[in-house]
Every structure is written in structure tokens, then in C-alpha cells.
């Protein structure tokens, strides 16, 4: 899919997002200036998220890839929302030329979010978040590419190549926009949309993995969407 098409869809989604959040943005009350300066706790609230999108994405990718992930996010100084995400992912794909690719690996992402949504007051019944943030992602994994066949038609020679147990470590950066809506007390539902950029791509002509756990299909940049169910404690 062309980068241009993806950008248009992303812009469209973000514009819908602003319509939704317009209902929730309130200005600060003027009497806040007179209130006693409250002690801001260092850490407050921990929320555990589980990615429920594998239910959809594994079906949509035709069972070629899988990714399971969870996250832990907290509120720091009522301003920052640091987050750690971790998971397992893998792929098993055979191309039209019968070349097979298999990988399984573990990934980790860490970063922080900022809440763009203003709360009218802290005692509101349901707290919703519209986050914008960044991540650094990391994955180390093994992969195999098998059955690459080279034929020399004129000279009548054939060779088959197998590359087993290749080890790879990938690092990438992400910009993330997320929504977390508190649907009932302490239970959150939401989604995240991510733009990922690989920091150490493979050089041309070298064997490279088709799928990178936590990142997606190997490309200099990729998009990702998660649907998330969370619990705050």
C-alpha cells in the first residue's frame, strides 16, 4: 500500500479523533488560581493493558503473523505517563516462489505519553485520555529463510540455499497516538495508532528478516494499530 494512501487514512482518522475529543476539552476554571497548591504525588495510578487486536489481526493476515502484547502505564507527576510494553511475536510465511520464512521473538518498548485532553476537574466520574507519545522499541530474535532456488537455464545448473538460525537485533522509534476511554470504573478500552521507524535497517543484498517482532513487516517505516483492554489499580 502506498505511503501516500496510508498518510491520507492517518490524517482522516486523526481528524475524526479531534471531533471526538472536542466534546471533552474544557478550559481551566478561573478559581483554580486561588486554590491551595496541592501536593502532586510522584506516581499515581497504574494501568495494565492487554492488546486484544491479535483476535482481528491474526485473522486478517491469514495466520501468517501473530503478536501478543501487554503494557504497564503509570502517571508521573500528573503530567507524564511513562509506559513499558512487552510481548511475543512471530511469523511463518511462504512466498509465491515457495521460499519459507519463520521467526519467533520477544520485544520490548519503553516511552512516555502526554495527555492532550484537559480534565474539567480531577473528581470527574470517568477519566479519559487522548495520549500523544513516543517509544523506543527493541527486539532480538532468530529467523530462518529456506528454499531459495537459483536456476541457470542456459547452463543447466540449479542450487538451493537455506539460511537457518540467523540472529537479528532491531531497534526502532515510534510516535504513538492513543485513546483510552474508561467505560466502567477502572476498566479501560481504547486503541493506539503508531508510526514506526527502523533505526538499524539491513544493508542491501544481505539476508534480512521479513517480519520483526514488535515492529511488523520489515521496512524502513511501518504503521501499527492496537486495540487495548486495560485495568487501572
Amino acid at each position: 500500500m502506498l505511503i501516500i494512501q496510508r498518510l491520507h487514512i492517518f490524517k482522516f482518522l486523526i481528524s475524526i479523533l479531534f471531533v471526538v475529543s472536542a466534546n471533552n476539552i474544557f478550559a481551566q476554571e478561573p478559581n483554580q488560581k486561588d486554590s491551595i497548591k496541592e501536593k502532586v504525588p510522584l506516581f499515581k495510578d497504574f494501568r495494565v493493558d492487554v492488546d486484544i487486536s491479535p483476535i482481528f489481526t491474526t485473522l486478517l493476515s491469514g495466520g501468517e503473523t501473530y503478536s501478543l502484547e501487554g503494557a504497564l502505564q503509570t502517571t508521573l507527576l500528573n503530567k507524564y505517563y511513562p509506559i513499558v510494553e512487552a510481548g511475543l511475536a512471530g511469523a511463518n510465511k511462504t512466498s509465491l516462489e515457495d521460499i519459507n520464512f519463520v521467526t519467533n521473538g520477544f520485544f520490548l518498548r519503553a516511552g512516555t505519553d502526554f495527555n492532550v485532553l484537559k480534565q474539567k476537574n480531577m473528581n470527574k466520574k470517568f477519566t479519559n485520555y487522548f495520549f500523544v507519545g513516543a517509544r523506543i522499541g527493541f527486539s532480538t530474535f532468530g529467523y530462518s529463510i529456506n528454499n531459495i532456488i537459483l536456476t541457470d537455464d542456459y547452463w543447466n545448473e540449479t542450487k538451493t540455499y537455506n539460511f537457518d538460525n540467523q540472529i537479528s537485533a532491531k531497534v526502532w522509534m515510534e510516535i504513538v497516538a492513543s485513546i483510552r476511554v474508561e467505560i466502567v470504573k477502572n476498566i479501560y478500552l481504547g486503541w493506539s495508532i503508531r508510526n514506526k521507524n527502523l533505526l538499524n535497517p539491513d544493508s542491501e543484498g544481505k539476508i534480512s528478516p521479513w517480519y520483526i517482532p514488535g515492529f511488523g513487516k520489515n521496512d524502513t517505516s511501518a504503521w501499527g494499530v492496537n486495540y487495548v483492554l486495560g485495568y487501572k489499580f
Binding site: I9, F12, L13, N23, L189, W223
Partner: peptide, 20 residues
Amino acid sequence: KYLFFVIIVTLAQFLFSCTT
């Protein structure tokens, strides 16, 4: 609010359905 949420979720599917 829920309606918007559902619309966004359905539209986000496009990002997955367009495979190379």
C-alpha cells in the same frame, strides 16, 4: 461517543486490510 469509537475502530481496519 461510542458511535465515534466504533467508526474509528472500523476505519482502522483499513490499515491492516491493505497488504502488499
